[in-house]
Write a protein that binds this DNA or RNA. Structure first.
Length: 166
DNA sequence: GCCAACGTTGGC
DNA sequence: GCCAACGTTGGC
């Protein structure tokens, strides 16, 4: 079993949205490294820290707001082929057309997994808290310029953060 | 709103 | 295959 950190902009899709929905497809990831983690390394039951990024609201600082769980096998991200979608990817569409024309198998560019709600922390474990804690100094998320929206997390770091919020 | 970091694209 | 240009992320 592995552990992850998944980022979402809090005012775009928050832990509250996930709690309400119960489960959601993690659509819109358009970074190969992040996709590879979902497609090649996640297993059903893996746990992830749910991180809110890019907050401008002081009342909702950036940080870990709760826990989510991988709840599906990887499958194609349909939003990549929806022209109206924010994350529409014309390159992936032409790849599909080319495959159909040449009668070869189409391998979807973008794959995702579903995440289901596990818990919401009573108080978020903020980014500044992570940065101040020497035990967490190696976490990817607190390193400068770390833009990766899906990151692997060490089990000890995962447990440390979750335990501190129980 | 600014800007550093960094992934991706495209010309050569 | 290099690298400049460009777009996006995300912290501040």
């Amino acid at each position: 079993m592995k552990f992850w950190l998944i980022k979402s902009e809090g005012d775009c899709y928050s832990i509250d949205d996930l709690q309400r929905d119960g489960k959601t497809p993690w659509a819109g990831v358009r970074n190969f490294q992040a996709r590879n983690f979902m497609r090649d390394h996640m297993k059903i039951g893996d746990l992830a820290l749910f991180y809110h990024s890019s907050s401008t609201d002081k009342k909702n600082p950036n940080g870990v707001y709760g826990v989510a769980k991988v709840s599906s096998l990887p499958y194609p991200d349909a939003t990549a082929h929806e022209p109206k979608d924010e994350h529409f990817d014309p390159t992936s569409v032409s790849k599909k057309k080319l495959a159909e024309k040449s009668n070869t198998e189409y391998i979807p560019t973008w794959m995702l997994v579903d995440f289901s709600f596990v818990k919401k922390f009573e108080t978020p474990f903020t980014l500044s808290e992570i940065k101040l804690d020497p035990k967490l100094k190696n976490m990817m998320v607190c390193q400068k310029g770390s833009r990766l929206s899906i990151q692997p997390v060490l089990e000890k770091d995962f447990n440390y953060i979750v335990t501190k919020r129980q």
